[in-house]
């Protein structure tokens, strides 16, 4: 691709879903743009591009963040987990299984963000109460489900007794 005006390529090294990677990004790319457009991790969704919806939620160095509010250049040397890194080679994460069994998704576009956020919750609070779940997930918007089955799925995944890995 020829360089267009105002584009500046940078190289970023980061560990993405456990794999060390080196990728080319534009200096003005957000982490969301880099993950989607440069690396091809399309599971990270864009709903608002300004931190309001949580569809782009990823885990950055152990913390939940909105990928649309992080610059790609900032993640040099960091570790990032996206929805694509939640299931293991053994199968789906208990949360993913619970979302399926509880019909916790309709259109599904919010689902990656919810599952990543819920995983971060179970990592710090393996047995949350309903209110804990609602508070933690308040940054993730879902317009289809009314949240009922999402909250239920998170509670069910926690109640499974399976440790969230």
């Amino acid at each position: 691709m020829t360089e267009a005006a105002g584009t500046r390529r940078i190289v970023v090294e980061a560990t993405i879903n456990g794999e060390p990677q080196e990728f080319l990004a534009d200096e003005r790319d957000s982490l969301l743009e880099a993950l989607r457009d440069r690396i091809g991790l399309m599971g990270v969704k864009e709903g608002c591009n300004n931190g309001n919806c949580g569809a782009c939620t990823v885990i950055l160095d152990g913390r939940l963040v909105c990928a649309c509010l992080v610059m790609a250049a900032e993640v040099e040397g960091s570790a990032i987990t996206t929805i694509e890194g939640i299931a293991s080679s053994d199968g789906l994460h208990p949360l993913q299984q619970a979302f399926l069994e509880d019909a916790a998704l309709q259109c599904g576009v919010c689902t990656p963000g919810f599952i990543v956020a819920a995983k971060a919750l179970l990592d710090v609070n393996p047995h949350p109460a309903e209110d804990d779940v609602r508070l933690w997930l308040a940054g993730n918007l879902c317009r289809c489900t009314g949240y009922d089955k999402i909250v239920q799925a998170v509670l069910d995944a926690a109640g499974d007794g399976k440790e969230s890995a």
Binding site: M42, G43, T82, L92, L100, E101, T111, P112
Partner: peptide, 23 residues
Amino acid sequence: TRPIRPDGTDKVTGRANYGADIR
């Protein structure tokens, strides 16, 4: 009955292709 939806796994693993995901 309440079977698991056929497109579910792709949607909970981030593999489903939405409109903006096309390249």
